[in-house]
Design a binder for these strands. Structure first.
Length: 821
RNA sequence: GCCGAAGUGGCGGAAUUGGUAGACGCGCUGGACUCAAAAUCCAGUGGGGAUUACACCUCGUGCCGGUUCGAGUCCGGCCUUCGGUACCA
């Protein structure tokens, strides 16, 4: 009979639910494992196979750990706020809350159908006040510590979504991550979280976590720590000065001009009257450029002079001040000292605008008078640098910095590429920011007792610019918590990365009322032991979560430094070479496979396809192989119904009492237990499945074995299958005559180590490294014995006859290599 | 451009510290069953050569070189693909 997956899957899902086998007892943390998979974004109604590829293998790992006696907590939830739901509402008129809740219901059904071991009592969604109240509370804590602040800043603005995007949400081609529209620059007053205060700690922490090296490298580069010096330049005819940041103070004598980022306010102040028109024209011309456009290496450099001059503090030279878009207001001080001789960008710029190039570092083995063809950026000997002449330039960096500090015109400092986290969004479907704006008192934080500030249901979320919440009169108007006068609420909402920065703490008790999360549980259960999710989150989400975790530690709420001890990235499943996405229309729907093969075959096939961390292009060719495997097994178990009741197995067998088939099968069974355990433990599901297929091939002669031994083998087979194909394994287990669910009784067998080794091994006999024969010898035979047999072997002797044996290499149980001349 | 990862049969992919390359599966070929087909079962299956047949020989892990008794694995230099990133002063 064909394996009736439909009824069996629903049967066991019902039993698991009734018996609460997935409920984790969080008060017992002795052998705890917090296994977390990145929560799901319910933007599309259906889960596609990419989601399955993420969730099913992780579930297999969690089930494996659970059967091995660990107390595993595996929760699931929904990253429910965000743009797609709102964009969908604008298009169709369906309210984001309604569409999101419906999608969540569909997804929950699918996750249950998949057979996920999720603790449903820990399910959470971020779009409910019970959750986002604590985003607001978190905001207030950051605010109290001065880590949430407002500033006017040039921001990435998506004209289509009419919202500000974080830099990280703008794709490489300058388009909006969510809708694909080209992003423009716009200045707005926005809320920021001061992640830069934690930059150093975020760097140091990378050494303490078991994460993929490449992910750590990406975070390292993203933070981009650089050590340098700030130097003050006086502006001719102005009180103010220009402070530049440089990593090369040794080139200070080579400065031939200064460049300001065009959007800096100072530009307006110092620009000479006759240059104003050109300068403003230039500023206008780059406004439409996205930061990516501005910073493109292929684009020719542009810029205009301001007519103003600065004085070089070390030699009193008068140098012109320019503005150019290659200088960014957001990095360093926004002002750059240009040394064309020793910086590639400055060199290119100076060449184009005929600015002087002054050599101050001499390249080893070159002449001072030789004209530079390109910037020399390495270490050399300082020249044209007054009293520093003759010093090696790397030493000059130290020396000049010291002297600048003594004269109070410079200061050694550290700069980060990392910017503060912009969290304001001019959007409806998110967490309202708990700030009130009062005409008298200015910005006033909402008292904690008044939280949550509930997101109103009735708003106009049409894309007419600005924040939709401003259209809700009752939301907007309030009284000032400080003076009681009329005030209005902040109408922006928070970036959804705030939600995902602490959800792993909330899972431990999503209904907790006395705080953001249950600290007692968090102290016991965090850090998360194993976190699984896509590599696309390598810098954004994973860096923000680390920051928030460290902040929570600093206010005494968690007792660890890092949120995620171990990180695994599942690979991406592509379709015809492209990432699956609704917009590309290449999403593969799992339903066909569920209806044809069932959930277990489908999830096992996903794991069998290849290494979990590699992913790959989707193809369904091989699924029939996994299906055949399951069908064959099903017939075997069907043919041995109630076997364990009639012929109970022994725990251990002695090889000497076995016939040949029994001996082979006993050995293979134990080897498979060993192999599958190690492979699943290391997220190598493909080889675990292959090992089970090998075992199936081996037990073709099962009927030649003693009955109680047949029980022994089939018991183990069912248990080994359980993490991979949980419904099917339960059914097999029951067919054998077992009364209790595998996952209720938590069984895992360990291998009989004495049965792992073999009596005889094949040894490869080589002559000059070429395989000439394989001989079968007793396990652990010594060299003399192997040598004797090898030399007598015809296939070997014909290659060594008449030759001189130079040497012989013997590796026990593996190889015997004869080197002849 | 820079950083990172990867290139193995017709296909997805296996291969402890260097030690019999191609596990497992798909596909394909042949056979059994069947009136026939599907399904199922059995056998074979890297390329080339050679043989009545069994032996057997030879080439082979992107390309070129190196280390070694021995290299998919280590080293040097290329090529290709895929990710990440982009004037960071």
């Amino acid at each position: 009979m064909k394996y009736p997956f439909g009824e069996i899957e629903s049967k066991w899902q019902k039993i698991w639910e009734e018996k609460h086998v997935y409920k984790t007892n969080l008060s017992d943390d002795e052998k705890k494992i917090y296994c977390l998979v990145m929560f799901i974004y319910p933007s599309a109604a259906k889960m596609h196979i990419g989601h399955w590829y993420n969730y099913a293998p992780t579930d297999t790992w969690a089930r494996f750990k659970s059967l091995n006696g660990f107390n595993v907590f595996e929760p699931i939830g929904y990253d429910a706020f965000g743009l797609p739901a709102e964009n969908y509402a604008i298009k169709t008129g369906v309210h984001p809350q309604d569409s999101t809740l419906k999608n969540i219901n569909d997804i929950r059904e699918m996750l249950k159908r998949m057979g996920g071991m999720y603790d449903w009592s820990a399910e959470l969604m971020t779009c409910v006040p019970e959750y986002y109240k604590w985003n607001q509370w978190l905001f207030l804590q950051l605010y109290k510590k001065g880590l949430a602040y407002r500033k006017n800043a040039p921001v990435n603005w998506c004209p289509s979504c009419k919202t500000v995007l974080a830099r990280e949400q703008v794709l490489g081609d300058g388009s909006c991550e969510r809708c694909g529209t080209t992003v423009i620059q716009k200045a707005l007053t926005q809320w920021f979280f001061k992640i830069t205060d934690y930059a150093d700690e975020l760097l140091d922490g990378l050494n303490k976590i078991n994460w993929p090296e490449k992910t750590k490298a990406m975070q390292f580069n993203w933070i981009g720590k650089s050590i340098g010096t700030e130097v003050d330049f006086q502006i001719e005819g102005h009180e103010e000065k220009i402070t530049v940041f440089t990593t090369r103070p040794d080139t200070l004598f080579g400065v031939t001009y200064i460049v300001l980022a065009p959007e800096k306010e100072l530009v307006q102040k110092i620009t000479k009257l006759e240059f104003k028109e050109e300068v403003n024209k230039y500023i206008d011309s780059i406004k439409s450029l996205s930061e990516v456009d501005r910073t493109s290496t292929v684009k020719e450099k542009t810029g205009v002079p301001t007519g103003a001059f600065a004085i070089n503090p070390v030699n009193g030279e008068r140098v012109p001040i320019w503005i150019a878009d290659y200088v960014l207001a957001t990095y360093g001080t926004g002002y750059v000292m240009a040394v064309p001789a020793h910086d590639e960008r400055d060199f290119e710029f100076a060449k184009k605008f005929n600015l002087p190039i002054k050599k101050v570092i001499l390249e080893p083995d070159t002449e001072e008078c030789k004209e530079l063809e390109k910037a020399f950026t390495d270490v050399g000997v300082m020249i044209n640098s007054g009293k520093y002449n003759g010093l090696k330039s790397d030493f000059g960096i130290q020396k000049i910095s010291e002297d600048l500090e003594k004269q109070n015109i410079g200061k050694r400092t550290v700069n980060y590429r990392l910017r503060d986290w912009l969290i304001s969004r001019q959007r409806y479907w998110g967490t309202p920011i708990p700030i009130v704006h009062c005409e008298k008192c200015g910005e006033v934080p909402v008292p904690e007792s008044e939280l949550p500030i509930v997101l109103p249901y009735n708003v106009n979320f049409k894309p007419d610019g600005g924040s939709p919440l401003a259209s809700s009169e009752e939301f907007l108007h309030t009284v000032c918590p400080k003076c009681g006068g009329p005030a209005h609420r902040d109408v922006d909402t928070m970036d959804t990365f705030v939600d995902s920065s602490w959800y792993y703490l909330r899972y431990l008790n999503p209904k907790f009322k006395d705080g953001m999360f249950d600290k007692q549980l968090a102290d016991k259960w965090t850090p998360v032991d194993t976190y699984v999710g896509g590599a696309e989150h390598a810098v954004m989400h994973l860096l923000y979560a680390r920051f928030i975790h460290k902040f929570l530690r600093d206010i005494g709420l968690v007792n660890s430094d890092e949120p995620f001890a171990k990180l695994i990235h599942q690979g991406t499943i592509t379709n015809q070479g492209a990432k699956m996405s609704k917009s590309k229309g290449n999403v593969v729907d799992p339903n066909y496979f569920l209806e044809t093969y069932g959930a277990d075959v489908f999830r096992m096939y996903l794991m069998f396809m290849g290494p979990y961390e590699t992913g790959g292009d989707w193809g369904d060719k091989g699924i029939v192989g996994v299906d055949r495997f399951v069908q064959r097994l099903y017939s075997i178990f069907e043919a041995h119904k109630n076997l364990c009741k009639e012929y109970p197995s022994f725990e251990k067998y002695n090889l000497s009492e076995f016939n040949a088939s029994e001996k082979n099968i006993y050995r293979k069974t134990n080897q498979t237990i060993e192999k599958v355990s190690v492979e699943i433990d290391n997220f190598r599901f493909n080889t675990a499945v292959a090992a089970l297929m090998e075992l199936l091939n081996e037990i073709k002669n099962l009927d030649e074995c003693r009955k109680d031994f047949q029980t022994f083998v089939l018991e183990r087979f069912a248990i080994l299958l359980a993490p991979l194909a949980p419904h099917f394994a339960e059914e097999c287990w029951e067919m054998l005559g077992k009364d209790q669910s595998i996952f209720e009784s938590k069984i895992w067998f360990s291998a009989d180590k004495s049965a792992l080794t073999v009596d005889e091994v094949n040894i490869a006999v080589q002559v000059n490294g070429k395989l000439r024969a394989t001989i079968r010898v007793p396990f652990n035979s010594d060299e003399i014995f192997v040598k004797d047999i090898s030399h007598k072997d015809d296939h070997v002797s014909k290659w060594i006859e008449g030759k001189t044996i130079v040497k012989e290499i013997f590796v026990k149980n593996k190889i015997f290599n004869i080197v002849v001349k």
